[in-house]
Design a protein around this nucleic acid. Structure first.
Lengths: 202, 202, 202, 202
DNA sequence: AATGAATGAGTGTTCATTCAT
DNA sequence: TATGAATGAACACTCATTCAT
């Protein structure tokens, strides 16, 4: 007797997630070109063919990861923007969250690294800002601007500062996951990139 | 009339440099696996075969780049360590030099990016600290330690702080060269990573 | 010392022809899907990679064959149409030429067979008339029409008769090359498809 | 209440027929290699696995088609040979039957086409004469021989003439089913391949 | 019995490397 | 020495077949 359609769809969704989860790690560790399909399938623990029942191509897997990362993040960044706290508190909160994600070597941390390796081919455009980075960058720039009017954030172009902040977060993730640094950078270091040293900001 | 041996060797050396110069850019932009020999040769403006008259393999080219970067840097970092200036001044000098290199999109800047993409295969070891990073990291850790005793540098593990500083430098280079950011990050941002905000440090 | 550009181009053209020549035979014998690239390369006597220095894909090779066949034929059919002989003589001439080509197992004979196997995928449209067949079919229909007014050709829709004639030619080629029939059908049998039996037509 | 054994067997037989019916069309249209199991199953309207409950392999399906075609034909050709009519009448009858089958796009017509695509792999032997063609060819050669002694059939090697006749029939089927010709070739054209034009033969 | 997800052997294609010129 | 055509091992991808449900 065949499975019901519901059963099949659940199975498919589960497998899809499983593949994406493994692919994030592989792509982050080895880059796009450096990731071989055979290696990826083995890492996930499935046959090579199975992968192609879920994704049309290697590039398709890659794009699915980016899409997923974007979705997950745009929601959480929206929440951050709307939170009823001061700009500095937002930056501090963000820094703590990022530091924790990196420390725990979470999926999100791998996605962060992936974004740093994305200048590579796979569509040839630089997808850094386009895919993953846009929402976070824009939201953070907003927060920075607010913080600057409050006199608590370092002066400078908010967009550039935001890009800078994210670049640093990415390299910290890289340091942790690829360079296997044993220490974790304290959240304050991140916060300090944007927030001025002062009594009230401590 | 055949060329003298000196002429021949000079020509060989010139071509070798030319290849390395192109390769740094290609590897930095596309990663190791993402760089194809054909593409590299075309970028340099030579035939594919020519490349193999100077280097035994793709990996050999890659290693030559790392070696060259290490040599150039160990000399300049030795000089920095010995300079008769304060720790803070050294940090400020280093930051200005790095910012300038990145701004000018110099070869060294591409080497910085390259270091960030090196988790990729090419021998499978992580060459980050081993090759390029060791000397700079050690020297900077020394400087930081000195600065901390002088009370002008932020507290924390000097080695970790040094790694952090380099990670940020790398991401700035990445931002500029890959992300094609038009702005250039001011040197003070870098300096601020290590040096406390205070009147006398400005 | 590198080869001159002329040398290279001559080599390339020669190899291209060589590949096409082998490919016509393989595709004719095994069909499009039935032809494996490895088998084709071995048949030609080159490495698999070499093939891809000349054609972008298997399908590209296939299309190049069709194109080539079309070009070669449109010229020769133009000549036939303009020849200062009667319709019946043209049909007789055509039949003798086709029979000879098939008997000799010439390249053209393989192209004839290929046209018969072309309903297969490789673009999914039926390319029968579109590619190879259009010119021959149209020219022959003209000749038939003339012949009918002269009272020497069997009555019926000229276009249909022309298609019919070509279909038979194709199957004769098939019979000879694939079925390996030892006999060769006499040209008169072909002629008789269109020309009425009569004293003056003999 | 479980089904009786008879019911079960009837169901199995019905499904088997259904699969074969779809397979004939697919194989005829796309060739053996060009026919994918997935596509075939979808065309029939069953799951891929179901197919393997009835046939051991793709090749098994293919062979079953040939076998079925052979069986059906050997019976009908036996009848033709024994029919108490003249050779010319037999040829005329055969031609009318074939033309009708093709016009109706019957299963048999698809089998005719299939025979023309069989030079393809699927066991690598040419199955043209072996499977389907043998009986018809032999019977027809007999009829031709008789007709020749009666002076009503064109002279020439009867076996070759028979092969020729079948080749033409095949190409007509091809023209109709693959080339999607709208017209149907008149039976007389077929008859004329073998029967001389004369008053009494009309 | 029927299904479609899973599989790996096999196929098409790429690319680092070799080599004749 | 410089070149780019030739190569085959390695890679991305397909598809006939298996199997749990």
């Amino acid at each position: 007797m065949p499975r019901t359609r519901e059963q099949n769809e659940a199975m498919r969704e589960a497998m899809r997630e499983r593949i994406l989860k493994g692919a994030v790690v592989c792509f982050a560790l080895n880059g796009y070109s450096g990731t071989k399909i055979g290696q990826l399938a083995k890492f996930i623990g499935i046959g090579q063919g199975t992968l192609y029942n879920y994704f049309a191509s290697k590039e398709d897997v890659f794009n699915a990861i980016l899409e997923q990362a974007t979705e997950q993040n745009s929601a959480s960044f929206d929440a951050l923007r709307r939170a009823p706290i001061s700009a500095v508190e937002k930056i501090r909160f963000l820094s703590e969250r990022m530091t924790a994600l990196i420390h725990d070597e979470s999926d999100t941390a791998y996605e962060l690294v992936l974004n740093f390796r994305m200048g590579e081919e796979a569509g040839s455009d630089n997808m850094f800002t386009e895919s993953y980075g846009d929402a976070p960058s824009a939201v953070l720039a907003d927060i920075i601007l607010t913080g600057q009017t409050e006199g608590a954030v370092v002066p400078g172009d908010p967009v550039l500062l935001a890009d800078y902040y994210w670049a640093v977060v990415h390299s910290l993730a890289y340091l942790k996951l690829i360079h296997k640094s044993h220490y974790t950078i304290p959240a304050e270091w991140l916060t300090r990139l944007l927030v001025l040293d002062s009594e009230e900001n401590k």
